[in-house]
């Protein structure tokens, strides 16, 4: 099953991020290929996305069920294709980010040069996992939070293994884009008046 995991940090309290993520209308358009969504209850929603399967862009409808609203740390969900044989799930994870050594790791990695960057690239390639921490908002300290996003999608049916291979390269960019856009929007909203 293709899986992508991505985490990013921002100089914002966890509760601020939670309040934003809790309301899916806020960030739904940030999802790559977003067309529409319909909230049917606090835990049920239907999403229409355009996604690439190889060369072809398909419009896919998903039914999403929130398994856990774990305020303020976690949202777990499962998803199932309405018009496509796909299923999967994922989660948002929120936590205060005060681990100085971890926060410092990214800049240190950058200083290591080509070898470290290659290791990181390999990690991304094979684990489908990455992290944004060297940006302007990185660094440990009060009010710093980490948002992690994991997405898993398993194409079903006889063609599943082929569709799986076609989708795999796209999963991480989807996760990165969503988490980064959420954080960027929150930083913009919460920027001190200039």
């Amino acid at each position: 099953m293709p899986e992508a995991e991505y985490s990013t940090t921002a100089r914002l309290p966890v509760q601020v991020i939670w309040d934003y993520v809790r309301e899916m209308d806020n960030w739904a358009p940030f999802l790559r290929g977003y067309q529409s969504h319909e909230k049917q209850s606090d835990t049920e929603s239907v999403w229409v996305l355009k996604g690439d399967v190889g060369m072809v862009t398909r419009t896919v409808k998903f039914r999403v069920h929130v398994d856990e609203w774990g305020e303020p740390e976690r949202v777990r969900f499962t998803l199932k294709g309405v018009n496509e044989p796909m299923e999967g799930g994922g989660e948002f994870r929120l936590a205060p980010y005060e681990d100085a050594s971890a926060a410092a790791a990214a800049p240190a990695l950058a200083k290591l040069g080509l070898f470290a960057r290659m290791l990181r690239w390999l990690y991304r390639l094979f684990a489908g996992r990455t992290e944004r921490a060297e940006g302007a908002n990185a660094g440990p300290g009060a009010g710093l939070s980490r948002l992690g996003f994991t997405l898993r999608i398993k194409p079903g049916g006889p063609m599943g293994p082929m569709v799986d291979a076609l989708m795999k390269p796209l999963m991480l960019p989807v996760a990165e884009e969503l988490a980064d856009r959420i954080m960027a929007e929150l930083e913009k909203r919460n920027a001190p008046p200039s």
């Binding site: 190889g54 006889p158 063609m159 599943g160 293994p161 082929m162 291979a165 076609l166 795999k168």
Partner: peptide
């Protein structure tokens, strides 16, 4: 007869 194709093999080649 697309249901009998070897999609495991195709998936590996795509990867």
């Amino acid at each position: 007869k697309v249901t009998t194709w070897d999609y495991e093999l195709l998936g590996k080649r795509i990867a």
